[in-house]
Design a protein around this nucleic acid. Structure first.
Lengths: 202, 202
DNA sequence: GTCTATAACGTGATAGAC
DNA sequence: GTCTATCACGTTATAGAC
């Protein structure tokens, strides 16, 4: 590890280390929870000393905040990626379902929004605002897709697009939690019901 | 406190104390999370010493298990109460929605299934089985109501009753979490969408 | 059943050397 | 940037007196 770091040079060490900590923390957050992972867990996983983590993220609240900002970035990349790859509303929705499905399949994980909202009263106060931003970002994206689908006549659902987007997001958040406890089938069933609930009745 | 306990007699003291601890723990579980509340929190809230709690629930895993069993009991009472009060499927579903709404309104709380599933990988192993039982119990009840509604022609939804029951339960679980972070409106919106999704199209 | 006292350990966080 | 060493505190849990 040390040898490798020295080989890639000083700047890369810093950047990689920080991102490595962040990735590890993200993994731990989604498989355990915010208050259930510790600096020691990170330390053990990537083989560095605890003060090294404190050097990059001086408090756990700072790490938590960076974590959410990191999620915001990957969310933007993921959703804009879907928009670029697919034009049709149905394809975009399926892209979103697939993205969520990937979270579930990548080993005992759930949606970060879910875990952080479940722990809302115990996470550091400054994490809450960023969390809210990410939640809104996803729901706004979903609402846009739904509005497009309704406009072109390929999707049908009750109420306003943003209301149905909220239903979808809530259901998937709950479904990921159910799926980890009860098996992947729970997730695919919920997706199926959501899909059926938006199909156009002839 | 002590005086009162002595007045009600020895047996009552034991029973009441145990239930008092359980109620307090339930409150803490739903407002914080399982790993985020401690014996000290209970101790501070009801003014007893920590070893007293250990006397009733020797380990935290035991307390957690008793907590879920307690939830199973109150769930049975609540759902059978709804069945006795209301005959029509729509009234029963609304009774369930109201019950969940009550959780949200009683101060910053969420569904215990939600919090425990969110922490699934960190809760003691013996809690998981009971948790699963309660989840299934609720979904089976919901499926029965949905099946009745479909049979009498007042409800309409895609797929099997148990599949739609899973969607409803997942959505509400997610909605309670969203509502605590983003405001009660999120919950009522999800309920509204679920309701619309089951109405009979003329 | 309840208490005081304490054990044994894990936590986030800091000081200071290299 | 990373380390060793250490701090102050909170955690679950137990021993033993009343």
């Amino acid at each position: 590890m040390l040898t490798t770091n020295r080989l890639v040079g000083r700047l890369n060490v810093m950047i990689n280390r920080k991102e490595q900590i962040l990735e590890t923390a993200a993994e731990l957050l989604q498989s355990r929870s915010f208050s259930s992972f510790s600096y020691k867990d990170i330390m053990d996983r990537i083989g560095i000393a605890k003060p090294t983590i404190h050097h990059h993220f001086s408090t756990k609240a700072d790490l938590g905040l960076a974590l959410i900002d990191h999620y915001i970035e990957t969310t933007k990349v993921a959703l804009e990626g879907i928009n670029q790859k697919h034009r049709k509303p149905w394809d975009r929705i399926e892209g979103y379902f697939n993205w969520m499905s990937g979270i579930m399949l990548s080993g005992n994980k759930i949606c970060p929004t879910g875990i952080l909202q479940a722990e809302y009263n115990v996470i550091p106060e400054k994490m809450r605002k960023s969390l809210s931003f990410r939640t809104q970002f996803i729901q706004t994206w979903l609402a846009t897709v739904l509005a497009d689908g309704k406009a072109e006549g390929t999707m049908e659902f009750p109420g306003k697009p943003e209301d149905h987007a909220l239903l979808i997001h809530s259901a998937i958040q709950g479904a990921l939690q159910q799926a980890r406890a009860e098996g992947a089938k729970k997730f695919t069933t919920v997706i199926h019901q959501l899909r059926k609930g938006m199909e156009v009745k002839k």
